[in-house]
Amino acid sequence: MKIDNSLPLEYGTEQNKLNILGFWIFLGAEVMLFATLFATYFTLEHRIGNGPAGAEIFELTPVLIETLLLLTSSFTIGLGVHAMRIGKKNAMMTFFAITLLLGLAFLGVEIYEFTHYVHVGAGLQVSAFTGVLLTTLGTHGAHVTVGLFWGLFIILQVKKHGLTPATANKSFIFSLYWHFLDVVWIFIFSFIYLKGMM
């Protein structure tokens, strides 16, 4: 395996460069996926049937907690990638672990939020609005869940093999994914929750 040392480790081999470009294109597809969900949400936002409207069910506190948890996790994974670039394996693993813990906490609050919606009569089957709201949030939540397992696997691999071109590449790509989920959440926070509460 030829390793180009003039580039960061995650870009070091030909296959690594391909992986990173391929993942960016995948993120392009993910943008379209969430864009479609948002378009559907905006179309159905006010079609509440006999169910509650957004303003009646959204609560600022759990949503703010989720936002802070996820934004912080984006910061810590950034620190993790920085630690990886300067070759500090243990620091990198620690920051990745903190990221995943924050993600786990986010998921916990989101699950609480979902049960809350069901309790106040905004379950999946109530109206077009609740259906698309929970589907959109659920799609993001499912992405976070997948990310938790994926991140855990990467930490285990870094622990076992150290910082090699392969593990560095995986870690970097995972960080792209994690930042992307954060961006999606910013849109959810602004255009679903804040707009809905106004």
Binding site: T40, L44, R47, G49, L124, Q125, A128, G131, T135
Partner: peptide
């Protein structure tokens, strides 16, 4: 979601379109 989990996204009732 509509067919298996009973959402109303494309239905004629409960706000679906």
């Amino acid at each position: 979601m509509d067919r298996l989990f009973g959402t109303h996204i494309f239905s004629m009732t409960n706000g679906g379109m």
